[in-house]
Each structure stands twice: as structure tokens, then as C-alpha cells.
Write a protein that binds this DNA or RNA. Sequence first.
RNA 1: GCGAGUGUGGCGAAAUUGGCAGACGCACCAGACUUAGGAUCUGGAGCCGUAAGGCGUGUAGGUUCGAGUCCUAUCACUCGCACCA
Length: 972
Amino acid sequence: MEYNFSEIEKKWQQRWTAEGSYKVTNDPSRPKCYVLDMFPYPSGSGLHVGHPLGYIASDIYARYKRLKGFNVLHTMGYDAFGLPAEQYAIDHGIHPAVSTDDNITNFRQQLDNIGFCYDWDRSFRTSDPSYYKWTQWIFLQLFESWYDRKAGKARPLTALLELFAAAGNTAHQCPGDPSIRFDAAAWNSYDNRRQQEILMNYRLAYCGYGEVNWCEALGTVLANDEVIAGVSERGGYPVVKKKLRQWYLRITDYADRLLEGLGTVEYSDAMKEMQTNWIGKSFGAEIDFAIYKAPPDKKLRVYTTRPDTLFGVDFMVIAPEHELISTITSAEQRPAIDEYLAYVNSRSERERMAEKKITGCFTGAYAIHPFNGLHIPIWTSEYVLAGYGTGAIMAVPCGDERDFKFAQYFQLPVTNIIGDQYNGLEANPTKDAILQNSDFLDGLVMKDAIVIAIKKLEEKGIGTRKVNYRMRDAAFSRQRYWGEPFPITWESDERGEGQSLIATPLDESQLPLELPHVEKYGPGPEGEGPLANVAAWTARHLETNTMPGYAGSSWYFLRYMDPHNDQEFCSRAASDYWGQVDLYIGGTEHAVGHLLYSRMWTKFLYDRGWIGHEEPYKRLVNQGMIQGSSRFVYRVELKAKPAEMNSQGKPALLGSNNPIFVSSGIAAMEGTPEYHQLITLAVREIFNDPGIELESITLTPLHVDVNIVDGVELDIEAFKKWRSEYANAEFILEDGKYTCGVEVEKMSKRLYNTVNPNDLVTKYGADTYRMYEMFLGPVEQSKPWDTKGIEGVHRFLRKLWRLFYDETKGQVWTTAPASQEEWKCIYRTIKKTGDATERFSFNTGVSALMIGVNELIDLKCHKKEILEKLVIILTPYAPHVSEELWRLLGNEGSVLDAPYPAVEEKYLVESAKNYPIAINGKTRTELTIDLDATQQQVEDIVLADDTVKKWLEGKPPKKVVYVKNRMINVVI
RNA sequence: GCGAGUGUGGCGAAAUUGGCAGACGCACCAGACUUAGGAUCUGGAGCCGUAAGGCGUGUAGGUUCGAGUCCUAUCACUCGCACCA
């Protein structure tokens, strides 16, 4: 009876499904564990071996926790809405609903093959109306809520209305526009249109005009995290700034709590760092500078984190978009400024990013230093961004690199306020220097001076302490088809003014607002979404934008807890039971996008009392990326010398019809005489013509499908079949083999370096495949895929099988009682495997199992009472073979619910230890000594040893270091 | 430029706290069984050296009885951010 993995796996997958073995119930009487994968966008190219890495890790952990007695929630769904799905559909001319369907079918089949323990009854896709009904519902709650900064939490808008009616907004500054101020009387006098305008500036989901990242090629706006270096993350198309009406999430109001929350979760430091940087909190001051010869109410307000350098200011720089620029520019500078602004306008975001040259222009205006009255020239330059701080800075060239370069370029004088800490050649951004030339700050260390400067500025009423964030409110609308429609209609106000439409929420009873099926989903008119082309849609005055991809993924983890509830997004009982996700596994690419948004939504739902916890993911593990290991063949095109001219008198091109490939070792010699000679000889043989002389050789490396390469050796027959044009290819070999070149690249179909899990499962089985992915190395680590080692893991499972059944002898397991040594072996294995699984060190978990099996083979142990424990601890890693063996041993229930064996420590305690004996730190010998030996006993034993005596050469040792249960070191 | 991370045999890696460096596996070598072996089993193996022994965790220092692990400097690679005042 041999290990027939394909039969075993098929059998158990069917039975587990039929028996509902993975069905999870919300059972508050049992301890819970929630293990979640970042759900995939079902791409058209299906899964390659890189994708399941995290899924296998979480599956092992989920199964392990189940054996440990936890009620484990583990399920899977699809992030089906969004730009990639729509783009794929457009590229392939298939409706996104159809392509998404097809892709999901394919994904599901691939996932099922690997044997995951998902409760598929809880699965959904974000594009299901029954799901996005609740995405829309949460959006409406965001729309109807504001952030009460005093209370530090979101509250319903109705509470704000009461506050306004009673006391205006004096106690609750308007987050959207701080200049909006009114008392109760004013509020009550406003008409509905004005009141709605004001409320829009408070809503957590709001609509406004703003500079957005507009991508013409994709025909939509993108969030900041979807734009990389001036081009779109998807497709790499140019992105420009454009003013458009957009929906936003007021995530900036959650900036502080998103930062604080990082202290309560277990994410990697790198992940926390990325989020912290993205939020970009900085502490500083806003300072008002009077402008020379300007009316006193026209002040130049700058933001600085270094108010201590106030006396080092040599010039001011304002952003080209700054509102003051038109009013302060002097007559003689006007032409230069106009020209400069035109130049800035002509530059795309991309150009600015790519070529960072120093540009700028003097406005002709001067600011007045509030303490020494000096006149400070005001410049404008691209390097000051309109969107951050006040869009204006005070430039301190001796302390800031950019200011310094600017000063140098325009030959502006530099004031030194830090003495010999400034060398005149570059700026020194230190905070530790002692200030000079700084009036009341003289003699202070800079970091202490910051506080003092702010205090003085506040006293004089020309500055205030100010916290700034780099993070902007998140753009929340897309001018695309394949997303959740906004449950919003645009109603004209009571005066029927077409220009001032009021965003009006649909009633909850009208949800879900279903996405209409359309045949064509091209862009609508004037930057509007495709829905603007749907007459039935526009007739209802419905919002024509759709929500971005991250809307549905911001709360999906809650839906798994209560997936079929059509009264609520998730009952409070369900979310209270399952609580936080205990383990969340996914890639780093979602570090700032998805994770920040879902953290914000969770905090919001918590604020409003719908759930009881405010951080969604307690522990986050980022699986590494599996890179592709590409293989290359080297094609040569050869030009023969004139002696070989053909009938037309042109040099013959050899290898253009029947391609010729040289092995990588030969290709590597390119350019050497040996290379030329070797190829010439080979070509003479191929064409059976000893007269051929080559004039030139052109070498082209080409990607070849990794699946027809064994290690680096090309399967030539498979290669000829791979492409019809290679059917008659010729090969110049090395040692009778064709060796391919190797390079590590991203895994992608285009590079022919993808490996499909299905192929490996067919060849070795799901259990082998699962274990091999884990055996590759730590989950968090990125590494190139290499199929080579999978045989070793497969061999392990076959060796395991032979502990139970032998090909010739049949059953070899017995019910004989186990020996002391066998117990010791199994308990050691249980301990090591369990510990490894607990700390996500799945590669060492696999190796602990291998060691255990090797030892049991050495012990010739075939005892049921030992083997059945082994089978249980193997279950998380290789569930199919474990279940099969478990049943063959005569057990009744499923191994999936067997109790994880406890470690009996008594079998593991030792009375003596084989100590390494080191001389001066170098191990020279070993001695077995009782664990409770005293220092004196140890010294006596060690010094009597022949090897030690030899090294001592008769002299007494300086010292004998004895660390119990570790080692012994003799110092000479 | 700034921030984070990683450097260990031919290869993937291991070494929870400073205590036998290289577990486990791949590839490799030798042998056994075989008509055969890309099956299976047994054994070998970091490098140099016949051996004794020496050298070994990117490089150079340091702390320590003892360093892959801690400290300082430096190099290389990977990732993230990139005019954020």
C-alpha cells in the first residue's frame, strides 16, 4: 500500500466539503481566533506560486488554533470592484461583471486544489449588491457624521445641528474652511442652501472642489497612494493636478488616532514606520510676517518646524499658487513673475519630479522681521508646495539644505546663526548648536530655543504653535463604472438654482442602489463617470461617480463575522464575539492604502457605537514577495563571410529560418576569440559545410518558459514544441547539455517565469506543495521561486507513510506500547513543532517534523500511540495525508478536531548533559556531566580529562567558567 | 538625499535569552540493491590540510571567559518615502 496522494487528497476534500467540516458558527461559549488573509483582487492571470504563500501560512495557523481548541474564523472572499478589474475588462473587451465571474471561478478552483480550511459559506465579493448595500450604508453614516475634536470622536450630524442652533460654531472650528464662523443667530438666519454648504465642510464623507490627481489615460482621479512618482500605479500613465468636484473622506481628522493606534497593534516596525511617515505629523509654529508697504491685514503666514532659527531668515518663499502672489508683486517684477508662473504652469507633475532643478523668481515685495525689523525679500518657487502648511516658508539657508541651494543659485546672502557649526559650503540642519546673532535667543541650544521662540511669538500675537500633517483627505470618488454607486442624489435647492445642487442621501430603505448593467462603460462627458451616459441614472439626478476600490475592502473583515445579515452590516453580538482579527496576513503593498483606510473606518464605526473595538487587526504579518526566477536562451544570428555569398550576392544570414541557440556558458564568452571559434566550428557542423567563415554574430537573450527548464538545463524537445517557430531550432551545447541563463525578476506571465500551483499539486500533491512553500524560508522574507527542493519535502511525506504502511509488507504499525525513548522523541517533536507554529516560523516547523520522522525511522518506531500524535501535529501542514492516516489508525472522528497533544515534560527532563568543553572559547571536546554537579565537581572532572590536560600543558588554568546546562570554558 | 531592513557553505536556510555555527532540505560524491535507475536504502561532505591543526557568519575595530547574536565605523544589496519647510 503506497502513498497515493492524489486519491487521498481528492477523497478528503470531497468529504470535508460534504460534511461541512469547515463550517464555522458564532459560538460565544468557545474561545475565538480570527485568522484572515488580505482578500485578493481576482485577476485574469490567476494564481501563481507567490500568491498562496500567505494563504498557506494563515491556513496552517488557523488549523493549529483549531486543534488547540479555538473556534477559528477563517474565510476568503474577493475584492472584485475597482480599477484593475475594469481595466482588464476593457483590455479584453469583456464586461467586468463577466470577467470577474470567470476569474473568480478560476481562482476558486486553484484555491480548492490547495486544500484550505475556509468556510466558503461566509464568502462574498465586494461587487455583490448584498455586500455593497452595507458599503453604501457606511458611506451614508460617514456623510451624516462629523468629527468632534473636543470629544475626540465622530458624532452624528444631528448633534452638530443642535450645537449650531444653540451657539453657532465658535466652539467647533470648521475643519473644511476655518474662515467660516457664525453665531447661533447667524446660523438660524441662513437658508437651507447655505446651511448645507457649511455642513459639507464638517461631514466625514464630503464633496468639494479640490486639486486632484487626474489621470487622463485611465479617465479618473486617483488617491495619493495610487500615484507613484507622478505616474499612475496602475499602468504608469501620466497624472496631472486638476481641480474637480470630488468626494473625500476626512481621514485627516483621524490622523492622531491613526498614529496612537499603532502603539496598540502588532505590526512590523517597517509597517508602522511607513504609516507614520505617510501621516507625517510635524510640530512647529505658524508665524505672521507683516509685508512692507502693504495694508496691515495682508500678512504673510508661514509654517516652520524650526522657529528657533527665526533670526537666520534671509528670504521668504511662497508657492507659485499662493493667493498673495498677485497682490504683492511689484510693478517692475510683474513681467518676470508672470513669465515664471507661466513656466510653472507648463510643467507637469512628472517633469517636476524627474528633473529637480532650482527655479524661482523675486516678487519685488519684502516681509518685515517681527523682532529686528529687517526687510526680507519674498520669492516664489516650485519647491514650496501650495498644499502643505501655509504654502509659504521662511528660508533659513544656513540650516536648511533646500534653502541653502536656492540662496546659492540666486546668490542671496546667508546669515549664520550657529557660528562654527556652519561651514559656508552646506547647510547644517542640527538642533544641537548654540544660537548666535539671534537676539533674545542668543546662547541657547536650538532645541530648547524652539519652545522659547514660540512662547515669545504667542506673547506678541504674531505666531501660534501648530501641528501639521502631510496626509491629505482621501479622494473617494472615481470617474469609473466598476464600483459602488454613491447613494446620493443631487437635488436643486428650494429656489431651483441649477448651480447650487444639494447632495441628498438616499433613504436607507432604497439601499442597495444597484449598479446598472451597461454595455458600454467609457467615460462620461466633462470628466464625469460612465454613469453619466445612463439616461435612467441621470434622470434620477444620481451621483455619477463611483467609489474607489478601497471602499469595499475597508470593512470586509467585519462582514465575514455575520455575512448573511440583511438587517445590519454586522450584528453587534457577532462583532463583539469575534472582535479584532487576531492574525492578518498580506503583502506590504497595502501598507498605507488599504490598512489606513480600514483602520479609519473601524475607528469611525467604533465611535458611532456599532462595533466595540477600534483597531481592526491585532497582529499583522507581511508575507514576502515570491520573485520569479527567469530562464534565458540565447539566440544567435550569424552573417557569413562573402565566400559563402548566396545567389543574390548578399552575405548569407544563418539562423534566420532555423533559429540557432547557444548555451549560456558560450553566450557568456561573447566577444572573445574562443567564442567566435567555437560557434564557427559548431555552425560548420550544423550546415555540414567546413568552409563557413563568420563575419558577425548577433546574440539575443530571450525569456524561455521556466516550466520546460530543469534547474538550468533546457528540455530541448519541450522547447521545440513550445513555439512552432522553434520546431527546427539548432542548439550549440556545452557538455551535451543546453544551459539557460538565470535572472531574478518579478513573477509575471510576460516573462514566462510563472509557476502554477495546479501543476505542482498534480505532480506532488497539495500536502507536499503546502509544506514546500513553507519550507522555503521565513514567510516574511522575499525570495525567488525555485521548484528544485520540492522533491525533498515529497520524500519526507513518503517516509512518513512508510512508518505506517510498507509497499510490500502492508500495514507495519502496531499497538505495542512505546518505549521511553520513543516518547521522548515524539514529545520533543511536539514541542518544537508547536513552538515554531506559534511564532510563525513555519519553515522550522516543517524541519522539526522532518527531524521527528527521521528519528522515528532510526528507532524503527511503528507504535500507534506515538504515530497518532505525530499525525495530529502534522495536520495543520499536511491535512490530507494526516486525515487518511488518522482514520487508517482506526480513529473515529476527523483529525481536524483532534486535541493537540500536550507535551509531557517528564519525558524531556535529563539528569546529565553532554557538555561542550572549550579551551579559551574554542570547543575541543565533550564530556557528559550530571546537571546538578557543583563548580568544584565540574572542575575536577574537566581538569582530569586527557584532551584538556593536553591543552593545559601541565599549567594550572586561570579560570573554569561553568554555565549550567550550557557549556564549560577553561581559560588558560 | 532621508527612513527601514538584509548580508551565514555550491543553493534555500537554522541557531527564541551572548554559550558546540551550518540543524533540516536541495544539489553533489561514494557504496548497496538492481536488466536498468531521474526509484529506494546506507554513508560522506563549510573551506585549507594526508594528518595534527588552522581559518571561517560582508569588511575593520571594540566589549566579553566566550560574539552570527551586543557596541562603533564601513561596504554591498533590497524595500519604502522623496522638495512636507
